[in-house]
Amino acid sequence: MASIAPPISNELVLTESRTMRAQTIERTDALDKVKALSVLPNSLHVTTDMAASYYEVGVDTVKSVILRNRKELTSNGMKVLRGTELRAFKAETEVHGEPLFVGVNSLRLFSRRALLNVGQLLTESDVARRVREYLLNAEQVVRQEVQPGQAIPARHMTPTAFRQIYFSDVAENAFWEHLYTHGYLLDQRNQRRDTFGNLTKDGYRHGHPRAGTGDRFFMLPEDMWVDPNGRPRGRAVVRPDRAKELVEQLISEGLRANPSISWFPSRLALTSIEVVDGHQIEFRRGA
């Protein structure tokens, strides 16, 4: 049986592996944990200058990251406003009736995910390095060996990690859809309006446990990010004492579990190997 790879100590693995970046991109709480983050008045975005300030690098350095990774950053919420969209955004972000972007004909904005994505890629920043270290530490439970009988820390067992361990043959979108439609998690997709009046933003409680079945198996993590209005933002995690029961429940509802299951992920079936910066990294699934 293949041995488990030791915990990854080289944070540069995130700069080299898009698989690892995708695995940790939801942990936008890392931004606030590492350093105080200033955002625009809409509490949702930062500009290129603000991204450079957060990571304590020059604007040209951030632009270089954009040039090399435009498609990935765009998929995570980076966008450029022009014309009508820009005028609407300027009106929304006025402070005491004074516009912030006078004379600006186009404006690049980063969502929290996109800003985190910059930190995953940026090698010339100590702040970005600390962000990557936080991300790897937060996800380490998926890779490390857990002794039999040892509970997994609740803040680490995200539904994504749970699927990777026990239901990795189920497509990720199908897995999340099952959690929504079977009463585990709240589905508030496209329930809030964006800057332009379109219903494209998730509700504030999207992904939180539903009363009843959801509360039985899921909980909000103790380190969840809270927005300036006091609303917890983010998704639920699996209750560590209910992981085995949740596996059995999902199997009874028709989800296909991995061929062999160990109730703690101390023996994970190897799926692929990547060699990153001289380190052999094993990406595993199943049990």
Rank of each mutant, 00 (worst) to 15 (best):
Ile251Ala: 01
Gly254His: 11
Arg155Met: 05
Ser111Lys: 05
Ile251Trp: 03
Arg256Tyr: 06
Thr61Leu: 06
Leu136Gln: 00
Ala171Lys: 15
Glu94Trp: 03
Val142Lys: 10
Met20Lys: 05
Ile25Asn: 12
Tyr54Ile: 00
Val62Phe: 13
Val34Cys: 00
Phe218Leu: 03
Leu31Lys: 02
Arg205Ser: 14
Thr123Met: 09
Ala236His: 07
Thr160Tyr: 14
Arg129Phe: 09
Thr160Ala: 12
Val275Trp: 12
Ala236Arg: 04
Arg70Gly: 00
Leu37Ser: 04
Met157Arg: 06
Glu16Gly: 07
Ala236Gly: 10
His45Tyr: 15
Tyr55Cys: 01
His96Glu: 15
Thr200His: 04
Ala22Asp: 14
Gly97Val: 09
Asp29Gly: 07
Ser3Ala: 13
Gly254Cys: 08
Gln150Met: 08
Arg216Phe: 13
Ser64Tyr: 10
Ile66Tyr: 01
Arg189Ser: 13
Pro7Val: 11
Asp32Cys: 06
Gly83Met: 04
Arg27Val: 00
Pro41Ser: 08
Val34Pro: 00
Arg205Ile: 06
Ser38Tyr: 12
Ser17Phe: 10
Ser272Glu: 12
Pro221Gly: 04
Gln120Pro: 01
Glu92Ser: 08
Arg239Ser: 06
Glu26Asp: 14
Asp223Met: 00
Pro99Tyr: 05
Pro259Lys: 00
Pro148His: 04
Leu44Met: 14
Ala36Phe: 00
Glu282Asp: 11
Glu139His: 11
Ala128Asp: 03
